[in-house]
Simulated scan of single mutants.
Amino acid sequence: MDTINNDKGLFIISLDFELFWGVWDVTTREKYGDNILGVKDVIPRLISLFDLYNFKATFATVGFLFAKNKKELLAALPGNKPAYSNDNYNVYSREIPAVGNDEVDDPYHFGYSLFQQLQQTGHEISTHTFSHYYCLEEGQCAEEFEADIIAAKNIATANGITLYSIVFPRNQVNEEYLTVLKDNGIAVYRGNPTSWIYKPRKFTAEVPFIRLCRLLDTYFPISGYNTHIIKKEEGLPVNVPASRFLKPYNKNLAWLEKMKLNRIMNEMTRAAKENEAYHLWWHPHNFGVNITENMANLTIILDHFQTLQKKYGFANCTMKEAAGL
């Protein structure tokens, strides 16, 4: 197993770009619609802020979002679809029939104009699977996952994008599927932090105690420093592990914001000093409300990155670049 980054620390940001496709099975438009609609403002503001800091990120994009309209979406669907035992996860039978015609008609499910904005930047556009595929849920199999990845590659290629990296939806990293990725040209994936509280699990295994531990870990060093050395294992995609989810601003927890940011910045400093990688992630829709406060928090983080860059040579890169590609 070869080490990739050993001469400088790396700061990676990946964003799970999914709109309503990422949450349709756990919430409703009435409850979460403002977050989804807010992404139309979030994406250009992220692009502008990253430009200000000369910063490149990875936008892991659900394949459905490469479609301009419902006709293109339906034409891109794979023949071999996931056969989840729990049909409540089946986006093809449960959600697609209710989708509108295009981005104007249905901004919850379509975001081609946002993809176009990203395409004009130097950011990496990677995959979040084609259908927001759940790799650990019962019923689905490797052949169905491969059909999903091929569909994601095909619709990306049709839009001038070559996919190199992947973020597993719900962080359900299935190690048995890594060879499927490699066989289909996906050379990098975002793994989970090493602590047991971040172990890949089925959705039903995400019990309240584990969620509480993760919440506490946002503010207190429950899991220690989540910095990593990126290693390359022969025959498999490179794991660029996640370090921390950037929890969005919540006015009810505003008194903890400073602790949250200090937790992140302390980990970043550790990575810079030890020549390790630090990988921050979130969803654009997390910033879809309280946009001003969320962007202010990100600005603080990027300011700290610049300080570490000058002091320790801390470097920014995309997931693809972190894997040496």
Rank of each mutant, 00 (worst) to 15 (best):
F203M: 13
S14E: 09
M268H: 05
I149Y: 04
G313H: 07
L114Q: 14
M265D: 00
W255S: 14
F314S: 06
K258L: 05
N184V: 06
I264D: 04
I4N: 05
L52C: 08
A67T: 02
V167C: 14
Y312W: 09
H109D: 06
A158D: 13
I96P: 08
L215A: 08
A142L: 14
N154S: 13
R211V: 10
E138F: 06
A322W: 14
V240S: 06
H132G: 02
E293N: 11
V188D: 07
C213F: 12
K258D: 14
P284Y: 04
N239G: 01
S126T: 05
K260Y: 15
L19P: 02
W24D: 01
A296Y: 05
I47L: 08
A60V: 01
G79F: 04
K56H: 09
N275V: 00
R211H: 05
E124H: 09
A98S: 13
E274G: 01
T204A: 14
G111Y: 02
L302E: 04
G100M: 07
N294Q: 04
D16E: 13
A205Y: 08
T227D: 06
F66K: 07
Q172L: 02
G63W: 03
N286V: 03
R211N: 13
N86V: 05
A76I: 00
V173R: 02
Y53E: 03
R270K: 14
G224C: 02
I13A: 10
N294K: 10
W281M: 00
S243R: 12
Y225G: 03
A57D: 03
G111H: 01
W255G: 06
N159M: 07
A205M: 12
A57N: 00
G288F: 03
L253E: 12
L261V: 09
H132M: 10
T27W: 03
T58G: 09
N239V: 08
H279R: 00
N290M: 02
R29Q: 11
P284C: 03
P221G: 10
T227S: 05
P221K: 02
N294W: 05
Q120E: 14
E257R: 15
T3V: 15
N297E: 12
E321R: 04
K251I: 05
A242D: 02
F209I: 13
Y198K: 01
T127N: 09
E276R: 15
M1K: 12
V167T: 13
Y225P: 02
